[in-house]
Each structure stands twice: as C-alpha cells, then as structure tokens.
C-alpha cells in the first residue's frame, strides 16, 4: 500500500492551501508592530524618523532653541526642551503606537508610529 493511494485529489489542494497559509503567516505575525519608529516633526514637517530598535539621541533646532529627543530600548522621549512648561519632557517615555509628545512652544512633536494603530488620534 503506497502513501499516495491514501490521498485524494482535493487533499493535495488542501495541503497546498495549508502550506501557503504557513508561508503567509510568517511575515503577517512577525512584521506587524515590529517596524516601529518615532516620527519627529518640526513646524509640522517631518524632521526625522528614528527606528525604535536602535538607541539614538538627536537634537532638533526650533524657534526657541534645541529640543533633545532620545530613543532607548524600543521607546522614545523628549529629554530636554526650551519651552516654559516642559509638558513634553514630563510626559516621559512613549512606547505604544499613536502616543505623541508635543513641545508646542518650540514647534516640535514626537510620535510613535508603525505597527497597527490602536486609535486614530489622542487628545489630552
């Protein structure tokens, strides 16, 4: 008794569909949410896009002075800002997609992007 005699034509079809599902599942499961980055905007225009996987520190020049943005361990924060209230600095680490810190006086914003956004926008 050979193995192939146990298979019917549709079985091959189902097996091929299963194999396709397997192949497709790899990028589906692994890419989503992994390509996360921080989008730094100045005056409404994109100033830099930082990969969250690599630790980095950048300086963003604005009308009031320099805003320092740091990426570390998959999260991002505003380290220092010349603004008076320091709201964006005190917001601390941003790690979820859609989170945003706005340093309005210096016209700088930092937003976490990539992956699937759980919401369209946040208002505080």
């Amino acid at each position: 008794m050979s193995w192939s005699s146990l298979l019917r034509p549709g079985d091959y079809l189902v097996a091929v569909c299963g194999a396709i599902l397997c192949v497709v599942s790899f990028p589906l499961a692994w890419q989503e949410g992994r390509a996360e980055k921080a989008v730094v905007r100045r005056g409404g225009e994109v100033f830099a896009e930082l990969e969250l996987s690599r630790s980095r520190r950048i300086e963003v020049p604005g009308p009031l002075g320099t805003t320092v943005v740091a990426v570390e361990k998959g999260r991002v924060r505003v380290v220092s800002d010349p603004g008076a209230h320091q709201y964006c600095v005190r917001q601390g680490w941003l790690e979820r997609t859609g989170q945003i810190a706005v340093c309005a006086p210096n016209e700088v914003s930092v937003e976490v992007a990539g992956g699937r956004k759980p919401y369209d926008s946040l208002s505080y």
Binding site: R8, G10, D11, V14, G18
Partner: peptide
C-alpha cells in the same frame, strides 16, 4: 460534507489541525 471522491481524511485532518 465535502464530496468524498475528492476530499479524504487527510483534508479533514489538515483543516481540523488548523
């Protein structure tokens, strides 16, 4: 309920496993 001529236990097994 699939036609038995075309789909056998192997089809059932793969579908059930997924």
């Amino acid at each position: 309920r699939l036609p038995k001529r075309w789909f056998g236990p192997v089809s059932w097994s793969i579908l059930a496993a997924f």
